[in-house]
Design a protein around this nucleic acid. Sequence first.
RNA 1: UGCCCCGUGGUGUAAAGGUAGCACAGGGGAUUUUGGAUCCCUUAGUCAAGGUUCGAAUCCUUGCGGGGUAGCCA
Length: 594
Amino acid sequence: MADAAPTHKSKPGPHSKPNREGQAAGSDPQAAAAPVDFIREIVRADLRRDPATPPVTRFPPEPNGYLHIGHAKSICLNFGVAEEHRNAGARCHLRFDDTNPTRESPEYVRSIQDDVRWLGFDWGEHLYFASDYFDTFFDCGEHLIGQGLAFVDSQSADQIRDSRGTLTRPGAPSPWRDRPAEESIDLFRRMRSGEFADGTHVLRARISMEHSNLNMRDPVLYRIVHASHHHTGDRWCVYPMYDFAHPLEDALEGITHSLCTLEFEDHRPLYDWVVEHCAPVIERVLGRPSRPRQIEFARLNLTSTVMSKRKLLALVEKGLVQGWDDPRMPTLSGLRRRGYPPEAIRRFCQAIGITKFPGTTEVGVLEHQVRDELNRHSRRHLGVVRPLKVVIGNWPEDRIDTLTPAHNPDDVTSVERALPFGRELWIDRDDFMLEPPKGFFRLSPGTEVRLRYSYVMRCDEVVTDAAGEPVELRCSVDHDTLGRNPEGRKVKGVIHWVAAASAVACEFRLYDRLFTVDDPDAAEGGYEAVINPRSLDICHGWIEPALAGVLEAETRVQLERAGFFVADRHDHAAERPVLNRIIGLRDSWARRQA
RNA sequence: UGCCCCGUGGUGUAAAGGUAGCACAGGGGAUUUUGGAUCCCUUAGUCAAGGUUCGAAUCCUUGCGGGGUAGCCA
């Protein structure tokens, strides 16, 4: 070998430095620019090796809860991979993994479809239910029994658990392990026909009770559950376990790359075992072989967020939030009601990438994508969330001027709107301080500010209530400052306002993070102990009439200096506007105060 | 305690043996009729130790650290 070929690493054929960016079949420039993670690498390599077999992926939720931002990561991956290879014939299925009737419901089937569509993905005609394959699963069960690879175990659940062994100690075989195949087949069929009560028998794979991987210790394949199923009704009283059903579902649909999260890593040997040993049945049904491959990636963890369906369900059931679509929830329906644009969520999923490292992403990354998207696409309006009355002494009582600012002053193509200005205004309480700290350049007694799009105004007098709280400001404007700066002095502060005479009353729901700490799961006392008491603040204020005129449910807008808002999907009405705060603007003043 | 997986700035992620880059966050400045946006600059990283190599984040060994895993859930 010493003096063999003079070559250094010249990788032959498919390994010779593939073009990592340009391999996608699609010509979408955004897709071409998207990062290529290790899964996309595998998909591309497989397609290069075998161009006649396009990638087929699937998003396989169990309809037992609402989808959340973590699912979005999986959806974007699975549908994204398919989109990138659309020209090669790739597709992505939406499949309900509905093998446990006791937890599932049609409400979830509906919401999941709504959410995937809202996110911007389309499964075309490829909508499937695992429960539609139950006959084939059962055939596979019989096939395995016939091969001596499965048996009906008549032990109780406790006995099975006790004989499974531990992490360090092997398990012991079931006394029924060597039951004749004919007997197992007979029992298996009688299980299906409803002869036995729940828990009396199960179908188990016959692999090894000494395997170092606990999943391989004669895993249960089928159990008896006398329960009505949302999709198959009362046709079945035996249901397959995930480990049995999932590889078969994938194989039956011709899935090439079965992408799932890291906790299934240890299940892969069993996945492969099922695919291999049921291959004859699958091939008979399909008329061709089908060998899906499972690849695992890290699920999404977000700071200041709980992601488990169980905890999300608990928040809903304990009334700590107002439902699955409460705008503080990380569910897709919650984020939607909160006003997060689907595009921002997709960009977020692209930004965080796909790896096997189980890290935690800062929510700030999500919020950045939301701000960025909103900033580029939202029209600007004026609205006052916490009103404080202003009377301009040197402005005639009945004079109303109409200003015509652009909807987006940063956008030269932006159209204008009519903005009335009069003697009485509402401004925000936060923009006035009786005793301002250093560096505060909004309004205080004797100082001037710019009224956005309007005049420079001075505060001449403050009317306070018995408690000393300001209730009204008497002010005057400099008539010479409309559209130009005053001479001889600099006015640094700019505040928003709404003319009282034409203002439209509006309810504002100010949302903030649901939890006060980065890792609510690790909080002592549990996540419920660290719920942010100020995660919802309801205020009653005013918006400019031009905004009230265009507001419909789910309309997103920026209220200048106050943040981005969306008309509530359910509670907004033209005559009674309700705006949810999506997210505040970056605020370097507030940050300096903190 | 067995088995499996994973360790790159504060966080997330690139670099396929050849200049450690990007984004978010942080800091500074310019600009500004949103304390926004925009633009410029900037702080900060290969878990450790050995080995292979002209050259290692990358390959090998050992150690350390983190995650997953003992449902008739998925």
